[in-house]
Simulated assay, not measured.
Amino acid sequence: MGEVLTLSSRDIGVVEDTWRQFVPSAALQRVDPRTFAFSWSSAALPHFSTVRYELSASVQSAIDPEGQLMACRVASRGSWVGTPRGELNAGLPWVALDGPTSARWRDRAEVRAFVFDREWAETEVRRLTGEDRFSLRHPGVGSSPVNRDFAAHWERVFLHIAGSLFAPGPRSHLIEAELRRHALHATLAAFSPEFGLALQRSVQRRAAPRSVQRAIAYLEEHAHEAITIDDVAEAAGISTRGLQYAFRRALDMTPTDYLRRRRLEGAHAEMQAGTASSVGEIALRWGFASASRFAKHYRDAYGRTPRQTLRGG
């Protein structure tokens, strides 16, 4: 069964030492000791910990997790969170992964965090998606959530898992393993558009009939070329109308929708690699005649503009 730890203290050193059991790089800076009070709860499972603590004091903290993936929310009226890449929305959860993250708040804060062993998390996500090259490196997993709905879902999942793990009484290893997987799934869904797309591809490969699987294989191989849906249908050995119907039934999308998404993924990967000089150049190379429509589709898929990705945002 997971190890549960609860404690209260007014000693700043106790807070820092406790945090470092879970995130060795954790440091407290500029602490106002006059109102300092600390209440901690945590549950540690293999490869994963859930942490919730309340801290009364004005504090600045810093972490630089190495070999870890940490998703966190600092609930405080006067909080600020930032990384070397820029300031984050302190009203939402955030991820610390590659590089340092700093936070500060005034008077009082409740901190909620999931801390995963990075190697385990990467192995698990590759098993879930069936994609052996899936990486947790930024920007595969972003510091900010995909949108507010996913952020709210992450917070609900945190409260559920914390309530389950902090509750007294025995639990089976099976239940604890399910809670750990649920936490990872919610975290990746909240912070990684690529994870959602990879899951969809995994489901599609397993569930689609052979004609659709052949069409998908052709689309994956030739997405960067000037292909038509008639070309796809011929490669799949089915009529164009039959292909449209088969895609709708198996995947709830058209072949055109699938091709557009695959081209967006290719453009996204190219911009991350920094091999193109302009958004217009990438849009044309991946079959988008209109840069503005490309930008709209890209923003819908990834939650940011192509220009932001190209500039490393």
Rank of each mutant, 00 (worst) to 15 (best):
S8G: 00
S9M: 04
P24E: 05
P24T: 07
P24L: 05
P33H: 00
R34P: 00
A43V: 05
V51C: 10
P65I: 01
E66I: 06
Q68L: 15
Q68E: 13
R73Y: 14
S76H: 05
G78A: 07
W80S: 14
E87C: 05
E87Y: 08
W94K: 01
A103D: 06
R112F: 01
R118A: 13
E119C: 03
T123R: 14
E131P: 00
D132M: 07
H138C: 01
V141T: 10
G142M: 10
D149E: 14
V157L: 07
V157F: 01
I161N: 06
A167K: 02
G169P: 05
S172I: 03
H173N: 03
L174E: 12
E178H: 10
F191D: 03
E194W: 09
R206C: 02
A207E: 11
R210V: 05
R214F: 08
A223N: 12
V232Q: 06
I238M: 14
Q244Y: 15
R249L: 11
M253K: 04
T256M: 13
R262F: 02
G266D: 07
M271F: 04
M271S: 03
M271V: 01
G274I: 04
A276H: 12
V279R: 06
G280S: 14
W286G: 01
S290K: 08
K296A: 10
R299V: 01
A301T: 14
R304N: 01
R304S: 13
R307K: 13
